[in-house]
Amino acid sequence: MKLRFVLRQTLNNLWRERTPATASVLTIGIALVILISLFEVSISLYRNLNDLKQNMVIEVYLEASRTENDAAGISAQLSDYGTIERIRVISKEAAAEIFEKEFGENIYDILKENPLPVMIEVRLQSEYNHPDYLALFKKQVEALPGVDEVHYRHVLVEKLESLTQAVLISGLAVLIVLVFAMNLLIRNTIKLSVYARRDQIAIMKILGAGNLFIRLPYILEGAFEGLFGGMMAAAGLILAHKFIADSFEAIRFSLSVYKMLWIVTISVGILIGFFVSAAAVGHFVQKIYAKK
């Protein structure tokens, strides 16, 4: 009976304050869409960045005159660095085969000779895959006798790293503004509800109602706003995922991604609404008692 009463009060409050409640629901929904998208994009960018770093191959090109024996000597020197995970020497012939595989043409047919130099493929241990060490490594290795050039895809890594940071920072900035707005709007709805029912609260106090019984309808009001905002955000995110999956063949989302989207978005929405309104209702009910 108590719960039924509390729920009825909650729904009455929501209906009575439906305009500010709708504003709260929309703000929660938009904030959640941004929060979850930001989370997903960041995770995906970091994963790609990590993959790229893990699989970063440094190509050490020897001078044209150098042979595989020279490469073995240079490899031995590189091994002494202690930062190398794997070294592989690629002979002129192997390089020609790779060329044919990648470009579909035989280099001998085009040039009548094989100008490709002997190459050493190096993978660093993952902890050394950062731009500073890579630059130092390139400089040191290029100084070795017999080494012509050192290549790695540093530009891509650096760009991806700065992109990830930019996405995170701008997303966080938008999110902070939205969290602020969300807090303000939920508090405002709760404030309106509490003040509209200040006489009722005073009467319930005289009848011996406990704090929880008095406050619960308002806390649940916030939780309901969070639930509706979460449902709205989840629906929006799922539609966006389906659109992306339909537009780009390479991107597919499993069923569990959709399930997680529902569960996480709605749960986060409910928790936000619950805690923001719980903090607000205590404040406003105390104000009413103080005024009495």
């Binding site: 009976m1 108590k2 319930m204 009848l207």
Partner: peptide, 14 residues
């Protein structure tokens, strides 16, 4: 009924 609801009595009794 409110004082009885606050006390948590059953619906039928209230």
């Amino acid at each position: 009924a409110l004082p009885l609801v606050i006390e948590g009595y059953r619906r039928k009794y209230i």
